[in-house]
Write a protein that binds this DNA or RNA. Structure first.
Length: 141
DNA sequence: GCCAACGTTGGC
DNA sequence: GCCAACGTTGGC
């Protein structure tokens, strides 16, 4: 299983909205960036990801799970763009903020720190475990 | 609201 | 295929 990070502006698509979709989940549409799309193509069912609020909040607020493989993005006719479906799994007991992440030497290599503009990013297992720990989650569960 | 960083586009 | 111009993103 691999780990990812999904970034969204809460104005546009917030964690609350994602949770409201429940188990059915929702397609992660609107991505118009090749790197982000390629990341989504590599996702498998059951892969997990952080849900990060950009622009406002600037923190990891929850954990999601991939519940549909990459398929055409229904919000565009352009066949280049695809997206996966994700569903909310659980809240971060304690949201992990960007300053917290930047302040942690173990997370210095995170894509979030070094390429803040990429909206769908891979997360290394060690980084996943560290952020779960910071957020008050046992990484094993 | 500003500005830096990055990705994409298009002319040559 | 290169590179300048432009648009968008996102942190501050």
């Amino acid at each position: 299983m691999r780990y990812w990070l999904f970034k969204s502006e809460p104005f546009k698509w917030s964690w609350e909205m994602q949770k409201a979709k429940g188990k059915a989940g929702e397609q992660w549409d609107g991505v118009r960036n090749y790197q982000a799309r390629n990341n989504m193509r590599e996702m498998k069912l059951g892969d997990q990801g952080f849900f990060y609020h950009s622009n406002e909040g600037l923190e990891v607020v929850g954990i999601v799970e991939v519940c549909a493989l990459a398929h055409p993005d229904s919000t565009t006719d352009d066949p280049r763009w695809e997206c996966v479906d994700i569903r909310a799994l659980k809240d971060m007991p304690k949201p992990v903020s960007l300053p917290d992440i930047k302040a942690n030497p173990k997370l210095a290599d995170m894509v979030l720190v070094n390429n803040s503009r990429l909206s769908v990013q891979p997360v290394a297992p060690e980084e996943w475990a560290e952020i779960c720990r910071m957020g008050g989650l046992d990484a094993a569960t």
